[in-house]
Amino acid sequence: MIEVRELTKRYGGTVALDGLSFTVEPGHVTGFLGPNGAGKSTTMNIALGLHTPTSGDVLLGGRRYTDLEQPLHEVGAMLDAAPAHPGRSALNHLRALARTHRIGRRRVEDLLEQVGLAGVARKKAGGYSLGMRQRLGIAAALLGDPPVLMLDEPVNGLDPDGVRWIRELMRAQAAEGRTVLVSSHLMSELELTADRLVIIGRGRLVADTTMRELAERYGGLERAYMTLTAQDDEYRAHPAGGRP
């Protein structure tokens, strides 16, 4: 379970998050949506102890990230297109991460097999395509077999087989009772994957509801999103020749 509690974050004069509160329950895939600049990345960074909130906090399984004894066994995260050192092989990248928690080589090799990188595991990550790097990031998130998964744009760069694979993976993890939070801009894919949705805008909660409710009320995820975030979209593009 992920509990975001009255989360506020100010960077100098800008308010990135403004008293944001919501809960992500285990057992279903929860989509995390919002316009660019809404605060999704900031929320996830604070959840993982990478940024310090101005006030409020995020609890993962009832505890703050920095209080977790074995964080990779509690939370698996894939942020920012999962970077790896270009001079290091996928195998060594995962082995180094695994070594902090005494996770063995067998687990690393099984994961590389599972994400489809077994054939290129010893090649340097600098030669990887975007899809391969994504798969490596997903492997890193799954490394500790955590009950909470936080994924930021996991579908980015994956081929159609990969897209379906990650969708089924997320649904399977949720069905096993895990908490799965996936941040994405891909409406069509999210419609197939997520059961619940949290939508934020300008650092505040806009909606916390089910996919079914949005479908009934608005007739689809994209329309629901556009309607709900109309006021909160700071960077909305306009078609050439004037306002929509």
Binding site: N45, L48, G49, L50, Y65, T66, P71, L72, A77, L79, D80, A82, P83, A84, H85, P86, L97, T100, H101, A140
Partner: peptide, 17 residues
């Protein structure tokens, strides 16, 4: 600094204090 340059710093710092 290579961690900052390659972007791996977050994954590293998320694994331990």
């Amino acid at each position: 600094t290579s961690e900052y340059a390659t972007g791996t710093v977050r994954a590293t710092m998320a694994a331990a204090s």
